[in-house]
């Protein structure tokens, strides 16, 4: 069984070579590409995008369960087999999830995020972008893949592309090299303001895989767009007039839990 984090450490020389090639081939844009790498080295953090409900549960319960922990919790509550719960939850996507995670030692403990240097992250399924603190990446096992682990490295039939993983995986110390190998050419042709979106937005990102469960105290800040934040406030306005549906009321209650956590200084919200 492979160890993803060991693989990442074994790949540093190859990443450095590839990084050097990208920089050298940038011609007149060489300085800019190096600035991009330096930006990732300085500001590169792991972010996890969360829906309002997920962030509220995270701040209330103090942790974010991965799918195996969730299934285990459900199994205890219902006295049902954990794997059966997992199969029901993941449906036809079960095979890919389990194929990737069981390919690696300790894979069922993996947690997923994205490499982020600013901005709102991969927001389609979560408007709140929780950015973990600077020390988080260096304190425990952490590896980065060039793209989405399940989309780019596992076939629909559950075959894991080990060669591609070995080629692309990077440890925390080499996340800047990986990001530059992937985005160097694009970074040279875009403005520096656009780099956060280039590195991390829908549908493309550098995936971070780690083992330690982050709690609210590990979150440096939670970014959200002004329009998304305002939309949540307007639920209150509507509650006085039309009344809210169950879904709207749930959303509002989750927002209140987040605001309380912010007021109690458990998390810091940054509205962009």
């Amino acid at each position: 069984m492979a160890n993803l984090f060991q693989l990442s450490e074994l790949n540093t020389a190859r990443l450095e070579d590839a990084f050097g090639e990208v920089v050298e081939s940038s011609g007149a844009a060489k300085d800019k590409v190096e600035r991009f790498a330096e930006r990732v080295r300085q500001d590169g953090r792991v972010s996890i995008n969360m829906r309002t409900y997920v962030l509220a549960s995270f701040v209330v319960n103090g942790r974010h369960l991965n799918v195996y922990e969730w299934a285990e919790h459900q199994a205890r509550l219902s006295d049902t087999d954990k794997d059966r719960i997992l199969q029901e939850k993941l449906g036809k996507w079960y095979a890919k999830r389990v194929a990737f995670d069981s390919f690696f030692e300790g894979g069922q403990g993996f947690r997923y995020g994205a490499l982020n240097i600013g901005g709102l992250g991969v927001g389609k399924f979560g408007r709140f972008c929780s950015v973990l603190g600077e020390s988080f990446g260096s304190s425990g096992p952490m590896a980065y893949l060039r793209g989405d682990s399940l989309k780019d490295y596992v076939s629909d039939y559950g075959a894991v592309d080990a060669q591609a993983i070995e080629r692309d995986v990077a440890p925390h110390s080499h996340r800047a090299e990986l990001a530059t190998v992937k985005h160097g050419a694009d970074a040279a042709s875009t403005t520096e303001d656009e780099w956060p979106r280039l590195l991390c937005s829908d549908p493309d990102f550098v995936e971070a895989i780690f083992l330690d469960a982050a709690g609210p105290s590990e979150v440096d800040r939670v970014r959200v767009s002004q329009s998304d934040y305002d939309e949540l406030y307007w639920l209150a306005f509507r509650s006085y007039d039309l009344g809210l549906s169950e879904g709207e009321r749930a959303l509002g209650a989750d927002f209140v839990a987040i605001r309380q956590a912010e007021a109690n200084e458990r998390i810091r919200i940054e509205v962009l």
Binding site: V67, G91, W93, F125, G126
Partner: peptide, 16 residues
């Protein structure tokens, strides 16, 4: 791919 990501990464449950 998004649907798969919703289930495999964002806590959604498969439904039919």
């Amino acid at each position: 791919d998004d649907v798969e990501a919703a289930v495999n990464k964002h806590g959604f449950s498969a439904a039919s």
